[in-house]
């Protein structure tokens, strides 16, 4: 057997590094083609000797009793860490990785969760946002997951966080050098809606053949007078790869450009990781006669009076009443704590 065979089809004795092996004798084993037998591993069939085995273990009441730090086993973390390092070395390139099934659905942040789990350490302070807010249900669920599995400190304050996992927004506060922003990505391939086949888009990236994207944007202008892409607006990273910034509003695109923070992107279902190192050029695609422009809002945040931030529209009644408030809840709270007031904050200035 060659060394390469060893790598892919390890004999029983080499399948896990010694330090990470569970008890082998009498336990389960894998069947052909990666389908695993669980047999005697099952706690429900009268077996109790799995102390110390990596991974989840059920006790007699079938409750999760122990699991690895941040849920993932060490071999999975290593695999994800290797992909992250490749992503950093090739900014904007989508690195395939063997994404795992997570205890939350694909499409709900499994990529971001895997990346976060692979980078997170005991000294980190984690912030999780969805739509800019810490208290949206999925953000609450993911934050709770890491509190439970990693016991890590969490915060809602952008300034205090070392790792920020996000869905659909970049915080308003400028990120700093010690911070890592982890994006949840549904469709990592910026060309996917133009060409559904991975085999084709991979070639296009390899050849740096991005005419298709420019044609699409230009057709928008011809048809609508505008580039009709308002979120997940494609960017070019360091002059080479066209990258999907995840479905953030294009309002946030300029924040990616030469950010001091490390930006990591995880797409779990699509099994891709990519990265933008700090101080890296991230340029939104545009045309000379149609330069890239971000959204602007006519009025400031109704709660904190902030201008130049991204706002959520809130419908107040069925008679056309509406208000606009900061999508970044931490930013809004911080401003209000500093005494800023908006038109509907209910207190005088």
């Amino acid at each position: 057997m060659t060394d390469m065979d060893d790598a892919r089809f390890p004999p029983l004795s080499n399948s896990l590094p010694r330090g990470e092996r569970g008890p082998v004798g009498g336990s389960g084993a894998g069947a052909d083609a990666g389908v695993e037998l669980n047999g005697a591993l099952s706690p429900l069939v009268g077996e109790s000797g799995r102390e110390g085995a990596p991974g989840a273990v059920l006790d007699d009441q079938a409750n999760l009793r122990t699991y690895s730090f941040a849920y993932l086993d060490e071999q999975t973390k290593r695999m994800i860490r290797r992909a992250i390092l490749k992503g950093i070395a090739i900014p904007g390139y989508q690195v395939p990785f063997a994404s795992r099934e997570m205890p939350m659905p694909y499409g709900w942040g499994t990529g971001g969760v895997q990346v976060t789990a692979a980078v997170l350490g005991p000294d980190d302070v984690l912030k999780v946002i969805d739509q800019g807010a810490d208290d949206t249900t999925n953000a609450v669920a993911i934050r709770g997951f890491f509190q439970k599995t990693a016991g890590v400190a969490t915060t809602t304050r952008t300034a205090d966080a070392t790792v920020i996992q996000t869905r659909h927004r970049i915080p308003e506060r400028t990120l700093q050098a010690h911070q890592i922003l982890v994006y949840q990505v549904p469709i990592p391939e910026p060309l996917r809606y133009l060409e559904p086949r991975e085999t084709e888009t991979r070639k296009l990236h390899g050849l740096e053949e991005y005419g298709l994207m420019h044609v699409k944007l230009y057709e928008d202008i011809a048809r609508h007078g505008h580039i009709a892409t308002t979120y997940a607006y494609p960017v070019k990273v360091e002059g080479r790869y066209i990258m999907d910034p995840s479905p953030t509003p294009k309002f946030d695109n300029p924040k990616m450009h030469r950010s001091k923070a490390l930006q990591l992107f995880g797409a779990g279902r699509e099994k891709r990781i990519y990265a933008v190192p700090p101080h890296t050029d991230v340029v939104s695609l545009d045309f000379e006669d149609h330069p890239f422009r971000i959204q602007t809002f006519k009025e400031p945040c109704a709660l904190c009076g902030a201008e130049g931030v991204y706002l959520d529209e809130v419908i107040l009644d069925d008679r056309g009443g509406r208000m606009f408030v900061c999508s970044d809840t931490d930013h809004c709270e911080e401003r209000r704590a500093e005494g800023h007031r908006g038109a509907l904050s209910g207190e005088s200035r």
Partner: peptide, 23 residues
């Protein structure tokens, strides 16, 4: 001579390597 605490030591080494490649 291996890690006495593989989970946290490998995490710390990884973060150092990641920081080194990122900058």
């Amino acid at each position: 001579g291996g890690f006495h605490d593989p989970v946290f030591q490998s995490q710390a080494v990884f973060r150092a390597v990641m920081a080194a490649l990122a900058e």
